[in-house]
Computed example of a mutant assay.
Amino acid sequence: MARTKEFDPDIVLQRALELFWERGYEATSMSDLVEHLGIAKASIYATFGSKQDFYAKALQRYLDTTDPKIMTELSQPGPVLPAVRALVHRYVTEASHDQQHRGCMVVNSAVELAARDGGVARLVEASWAFLETTLAAALTRAQAQGELPENAEPRELARFLLVFFQGVRVLGRAPNNAARLQDAARVAVSVLG
């Protein structure tokens, strides 16, 4: 007779995400996961697979909860550039007020694992491609509405903003960068006109 799980996999995955996000992949041992989650190692393996599989599932959960928010913010009817500017300021505010200095799980994964883990690299690239495409679509709409000049290049602007956002997340990992981030935000907003 099969045993019933004594834990909610969704809650456990969220708690694992938080631990991986705080510590990173390498600094989180299976023992840390067992202790933090309060479930047996065998249950982790049976439900989530290896530590590497578990990390990928946690990263996917992070993407599932963060990427759609950006799409929603940038696809509202009406003027587009105020929403893009608000996104620039939101990234900077979040990075400046990140008391734990944990940054963005996508950026952390890119730095720590993407070069040697194809699965993580694909998730990171998918997130970046989604952000770039979402920004390019919004900026194309802004151009069509007369908010950007006809000679503007929405795809290039989107790539610039993608790189800007990832840089903001990196600097957010270290303390005392609020002034740098604010100055960079002013330049990013000025590029949009």
Rank of each mutant, 00 (worst) to 15 (best):
S109P: 07
D117G: 04
R155G: 06
L139A: 00
L135W: 05
D117A: 05
E150F: 11
T134P: 05
L131R: 08
N151H: 15
A138P: 01
G146M: 14
T134F: 00
A152Y: 03
A158E: 02
E156H: 09
F160E: 08
V111P: 06
Q145I: 01
L139Y: 02
E147F: 07
E132I: 02
N151K: 12
A110Q: 15
L113C: 12
A110F: 15
L148Q: 04
D117Q: 08
L139H: 05
E112F: 09
A144I: 00
N108L: 13
R141G: 01
P149W: 07
V107S: 11
T140R: 04
F130A: 02
R159H: 12
A152H: 01
G118F: 08
L161Q: 11
N151V: 10
L131E: 00
V124H: 03
E132R: 05
N108Y: 14
L157H: 10
A158H: 03
E112T: 12
F130C: 03
V107R: 14
L161Y: 00
G119C: 09
A114S: 12
T133F: 01
E150V: 13
L161D: 02
E112C: 11
R116D: 13
G118Y: 12
L131Y: 06
S127W: 01
Q145M: 05
E125V: 09
A152G: 08
A115Y: 10
L157E: 06
N108H: 15
V111L: 14
F160M: 14
F160D: 10
A129V: 04
V120Q: 11
V107A: 14
L139G: 06
A144T: 03
L135Q: 00
R141I: 01
E125L: 15
A152V: 01
G118M: 07
R159V: 00
F130H: 13
Q143K: 10
L157Q: 13
T133Y: 01
F160R: 10
Q145S: 11
R141E: 02
A114L: 03
N108A: 15
T140L: 08
R141M: 06
L148S: 02
N108M: 14
E125F: 12
A110N: 13
A152P: 05
N151Y: 14
E125K: 14
L139N: 07
L139K: 07
Q145A: 11
E147T: 03
G146D: 07
R159M: 03
G118V: 01
A110I: 05
Q143Y: 05
V124N: 02
N108R: 15
E150T: 15
L157S: 06
A121L: 04
E112H: 13
E132Q: 08
E112Y: 13
V124K: 07
S109E: 04
L157A: 03
T134M: 05
A110R: 15
A136I: 05
W128L: 12
S109D: 09
N151S: 14
E153D: 15
F130Q: 10
E156P: 00
R141A: 05
G146L: 13
P154C: 03
N108C: 15
L135C: 09
R116N: 12
V124C: 03
T133C: 02
A129W: 06
P149E: 07
A136M: 04
W128C: 08
L148E: 02
A114T: 04
R122A: 15
R159P: 00
T133P: 00
E132G: 04
R159T: 06
F130N: 12
A129E: 11
A115P: 02
